[in-house]
Computed example of a mutant assay.
Amino acid sequence: MKIILREDVEKLGKAGEVVKVKDGFGRNYLIPRKLAVLANVRNMKALDHDRRTIETRAKKTLKTAEATAATLSAVSLILPAKVGEEGKLFGAITSRDIVEALGKAGVTVDRKAIQLADPIKQVGDYKVKIRVATDVLPEISVSVVPEA
């Protein structure tokens, strides 16, 4: 099935692109969530008309994402945690803990935007990437220290 994307969909395409997807994915996921419309003649003509709107919205989104990225790159978090022998943590520091610390620092970020491969289980300094937009990935520094 050919569809026209109305929003950017990760690993599929950007808004305004015509892509081919499996019928079930398009019919059951993309179209009901208004992420895409069917690529018929009427919608293709409407796409030509809406392209300018999509480009304007993408530019505005990119500007806000870059501003957020600049704010995030200046943030440095210090997370105290209970520590056992050899600097190992009791438990782990997860993306949820990082989101809470960022919230206390005055920056709101979605938990799913944090690119943390594995939970942090050792004391130390770490660089954590945060996906603000499709191509914008600022890094924040996270220091895990023993709790006093």
Rank of each mutant, 00 (worst) to 15 (best):
R6A: 00
T71F: 01
T64E: 15
Q122T: 14
R6C: 00
T108A: 14
V37G: 04
V18L: 12
I120C: 07
S141Y: 07
F25D: 03
V132I: 14
S95F: 00
A101S: 14
E17Y: 02
V145K: 13
K11E: 11
V123M: 08
L30C: 08
G124I: 09
P138H: 09
I78F: 06
I3F: 02
I3K: 02
K14I: 05
G26Q: 07
A113L: 00
L35R: 04
E7Y: 05
I114K: 04
K60R: 14
E139L: 09
Y29L: 08
K45V: 05
K129C: 04
V144D: 02
G87Q: 11
F25V: 07
V21E: 00
L137T: 04
V109E: 04
L116T: 04
N40F: 10
I98Y: 01
G13T: 06
E86K: 15
G16K: 03
P138K: 05
I98E: 03
E17G: 01
V9M: 07
D23A: 15
Y126H: 14
L137S: 01
G13R: 02
N28Y: 10
A67S: 13
A36L: 06
S76Y: 06
A101M: 06
L77R: 03
D97V: 01
R6N: 04
K121L: 08
G13P: 03
E55S: 10
R111E: 05
S76W: 03
T61A: 15
T56G: 09
L35Q: 12
K104I: 10
K60L: 13
D118N: 15
S76M: 11
R111P: 00
D125Q: 14
A113P: 01
R111W: 04
R42C: 00
R42M: 11
V132R: 00
K82T: 15
G103S: 12
V21G: 02
K2T: 10
N40W: 10
K34P: 00
G24A: 15
P146Q: 13
H49T: 14
V99H: 02
R42L: 09
T68I: 11
A81I: 03
V99M: 08
I114N: 02
L47K: 04
V18G: 03
N40A: 11
K34Q: 15
A39G: 11
V37K: 03
E7T: 07
K45M: 11
